[in-house]
């Protein structure tokens, strides 16, 4: 009796927990104020889906699912790399520049940083075009 019951109850619980974390991560994808936030959350989603696939492999006994999980991991990794390149190529673009930094004045050690970050932006133009040619 026990082996099967233990396994199936653990599987149910884990599926519920994973579903919850999936929803939480999707919430970050929707909300995430900047593009890198969304990419991090998408990367995380791939990990969660790999967990789902592993659970289903245990449930159904089809070990072929492991190959699917590995290829999904590969695709997810390549997608993240491509997104990172995209972030580099696009710059900060049209999104609200200080979406995440608080509207109040930033703490003293970081105050010059914001100025530099913004003053650096015009310089990003030629760098981007160089990258695009590569």
């Amino acid at each position: 009796m026990t082996a099967q019951t233990i396994l199936s109850s653990a599987l149910w619980l884990a599926l519920v927990v994973l579903g919850l974390s999936f929803l939480l991560t999707v919430w970050r994808v929707i909300k995430g104020p900047t593009l890198p936030d969304r990419v991090v959350a998408l990367d995380m989603l791939v990990g969660i889906v790999i967990g789902f696939i592993a659970l289903i492999a245990i449930r159904t006994g089809f070990t072929l699912y492991i190959d699917i999980a590995i290829s999904l991991g590969l695709v997810g990794f390549l997608a993240t790399v491509a997104f990172a390149r995209f972030i580099l190529a696009r710059g900060r673009g049209e999104e609200a520049p200080e979406a995440k930094a608080s509207p109040v004045a930033p703490a003293a050690p970081l105050a010059p940083k914001h100025k530099r970050a913004t003053s650096r932006k015009p310089g990003a133009g030629p760098a981007v075009s160089r990258k695009a040619k590569k």
Binding site: D43, F77, T80, K113, K121
Partner: peptide
């Protein structure tokens, strides 16, 4: 590797650190 790439890309493009930093 993907975390490193993302962090580098985000920092190069000037996404700010949190103000507690």
């Amino acid at each position: 590797i993907s975390a490193h790439l993302l962090a580098m890309a985000a920092h190069k493009m000037g996404y700010p650190l949190h103000e507690q930093s």
